[in-house]
Design a protein around this nucleic acid. Sequence first.
DNA 1: GTCTATAGGAAGATAGAC
DNA 2: GTCTATCTTCCTATAGAC
Lengths: 236, 236
Amino acid sequence: MSTNSHDTTAGSGGAPGPAGAGAPRKRGRARQASALASERRGNLVRLAAELFAQKGFQATTVREIADEAGILSGSLYHHFDSKESIVDEVLSSFLDELLRDYQAAVAEGGSPDDVLARLIRAAYRSLKPHRAAITVVQNDWNYLRQFPRFDYLGTVEEQIQGIWIDVITRGQAAGAFRTDLDAKLTYRMIRDTIWVTVRWYRPEGALTTDDLAGHFMRVLFDGISLGERTTSPAGR
Amino acid sequence: MSTNSHDTTAGSGGAPGPAGAGAPRKRGRARQASALASERRGNLVRLAAELFAQKGFQATTVREIADEAGILSGSLYHHFDSKESIVDEVLSSFLDELLRDYQAAVAEGGSPDDVLARLIRAAYRSLKPHRAAITVVQNDWNYLRQFPRFDYLGTVEEQIQGIWIDVITRGQAAGAFRTDLDAKLTYRMIRDTIWVTVRWYRPEGALTTDDLAGHFMRVLFDGISLGERTTSPAGR
DNA sequence: GTCTATAGGAAGATAGAC
DNA sequence: GTCTATCTTCCTATAGAC
């Protein structure tokens, strides 16, 4: 949740940094102080993520982030070397955790529809802790990908896509899922439907993320129709 | 496609406008010149919409829009009184047309699942002509709604929602759709799944919008599973 | 209808005192 | 670690010539 494995030294010119620019190695008595520092940093990141999610990355100014934290904008640059570094930390920590969750869901094993159900629940469950990051991914992904710094977004996306498509394809081969559906298209549909929920989902409301997952899976696995399944009803 | 019925006089302060600020009534020999003017204007709007879609509303500068049109940024203000006016025209013309399409789909009549299928196809078909506008709606909706000028976005959304929920509810009452699904939740799922497609759909690719609609409807109506429908398979 | 020129403000980022 | 102060750049929008 803390290390940003995707950090690059790319910047707009400014200070090249006197020491190694990565996360400092913690050891000895420095560890405690460092832990406090990262907690502070983590707070700033969470707070910025919330603003990015509400107003968009571009529309959020460093002054607003600093205001929210009760400090002045200049002071932010003691913690981060640019506004992009902040959003980078928001995204990379979320994506790293998500990838691990998915890998764990697959590692548990079971039939393809068990695994698919587990993936779907894992995705919905991430809505609550990562609502802000997911919103940023959705709204600012296209913009951020313009910068080489964020190339890793595409890499992680491909790894994640591979996990889902693999499960769907295995399900088709095993006779659990229809073979007249394109696996990639189906994956995208599932992914989009789940993520886009952050636009209106409010964790403090009546619906839990497992409610959402349940509703979605009823539709996904069995459809909204009643009676026999049909190949092409109503001219579809 | 031309008149902006949602225009308001709201602005950030500047010139209050010497004459009536609405679209001038065309009559007599002025009509031809005016038609050319609106074509020019329409071109600028389309071009701006494309940029807004690619980079986001905030990140797109009036200079970029002007560059793309081959004029200087100051000259844009001969056609529009602000950057917001441009995006307003992008959104309102799209939403007006969409609402009319949906109303027409319902007016054709038929069983709930016929109507629902028609609505879904209409939505997918709008992806091609309105890709840019749909992208802007999705990415910049939250930001734009901060300004009273864009209050009408919420109004149109409610009208549209009413149309879909009505069809779903009637289908449930008629025994065509499952009653264990929440109509509003189902509407949102459908809407989101369709709109979010603009993130990756490329009209010039192999898939037509009717392909997408077909794939989606197979899943929506009948699910991805094979064999008998089941109420709670795999612990779902 | 487009240009030149510029007002006026806000943005991201930096330097050095405390 | 935060503040004060400020640099530089870029933005939207305007005024008036052509």
